[in-house]
């Protein structure tokens, strides 16, 4: 049974943070109104849904805890057992984009066997490793193992995908949604690892099949700020991927006007105004976003795509206008002849 979690609990700053953010389209015909958000995201009775109206509508469900006890994935293939809890929550941005976000802090435990469950419940959002490996430099091994999806390890590790999918599914099946979304969009998955280090850095890798990985080092910011950065990054990466897909599909240059409009319209109606990188990122982590904006250049690509859509629409409008301007006398002439 899930119980409330606190994201800033969890010890002495050691260990690494790992998590996953899944992003997809909310199954509703219209953008969800601000006043509906608490009902849709109220997944835990008695716990408040946090919502914000500015600079963009955004609401976050209460955090739930999920217990795990499994072998963690390692790059070396070494067997490491982890026991503890993950925190997971759902968020809706702009009344339109749904995210499932789960994370935990991996820490070296002091025990050589599983402790009573109360021990782990007292450390919400922490997974402790079990065994004698605590002096071993296992952080890098665990981080690499977690980020490498292609690695055919014996232990698939914690199934973040199932946990994020579960909470997103719960929101999508809400009785307050009509499940008639105006267009369809593939989900994307961002897997991330964050470690404390004197130097702040971020790396971002785009994989096939909607999977992305990112590695962050931060210095002293609260965990919640790191998680929000990852969620913001995942959100904008999804917006970009979805817009790219819409354009790929909707802009064969010689297609009929109606076909193009039908395919491009969802982007204009529902996506373009959602771009607001860094809107909810704390100031001290903003430089990380800015470095991604320099390379690979999220905003630059976004602006190019939006301009392309606007140019296409402008050109089509001009073509239609000139066609109708030529068409009117043409019809008259014919009318006179007949």
């Amino acid at each position: 049974m899930p119980s409330p979690a606190r994201s800033d609990a969890g010890g002495d700053g050691a260990g690494i943070l790992i998590g996953e953010v899944h992003t997809g389209l909310l199954l509703n015909s219209a953008s969800l109104r601000q006043d509906m958000l608490p009902a849709v995201l109220g997944l835990l009775p008695g716990e408040r849904v946090r919502s914000f109206e500015r600079p963009i509508s955004h609401a976050v469900s209460p955090e739930l805890l999920v217990g795990v006890d499994c072998d963690l994935s390692t790059a070396s293939g070494t067997r490491v057992r982890g026991i503890g809890t993950l925190a997971v929550r759902a968020a809706i941005t702009g009344g339109r984009v749904l995210q499932g976000s789960a994370w935990t802090r991996l820490m070296g435990g002091h025990a050589e066997h599983r402790l009573p469950w109360s021990h782990y419940l007292a450390r919400p959002g922490v997974v402790e490793t079990v065994g004698r490996r605590r002096n071993h430099p296992y952080h890098a091994d665990l981080a690499d193992g977690f980020l490498d999806r292609t690695n055919n390890r014996k232990a698939p590790g914690i199934d973040f995908g199932a946990i994020c999918g579960q909470i997103m599914g719960e929101v999508q099946r809400s009785p307050y949604l009509d499940r008639r979304s105006p267009f369809k969009a593939a989900r994307t998955t961002l897997r991330w690892v964050a470690e404390e280090s004197p130097e702040r850095r971020i790396g971002f890798i785009l994989g096939d099949d909607g999977s992305r990985t990112t590695r962050i080092t931060f210095d002293g910011q609260p965990i919640s700020a790191v998680i929000e950065l990852c969620e913001d990054l995942a959100l904008h990466d999804w917006l970009l991927s979805t817009l790219l897909d819409v354009i790929d599909r909707g802009m064969p240059s010689d297609g009929p006007h109606e076909t193009m409009m039908r395919r491009i319209r969802p982007a204009v109606d529902h996506l373009i105004h959602l771009w607001m990188p860094g809107a909810r990122v704390v100031e001290s982590l903003l430089p990380l976003w800015e470095s991604l904006d320099t390379k690979p250049g999220f905003t630059r690509q976004w602006d190019t795509l939006v301009n392309r859509i606007r140019d296409q629409l402008a050109l089509r409008t001009l073509t239609l206008l000139s066609a109708s301007a030529e068409g009117v006398p043409g019809r008259n002439e014919q009318g006179i002849r007949s």
Binding site: L27, G169, Q172, R173, K184, A185, A186, R187
Partner: peptide, 11 residues
């Protein structure tokens, strides 16, 4: 039912 809802989001 869950699966159908899940797929209707993407397809």
């Amino acid at each position: 039912t869950k699966l159908f809802v899940r797929l209707l989001e993407e397809f």
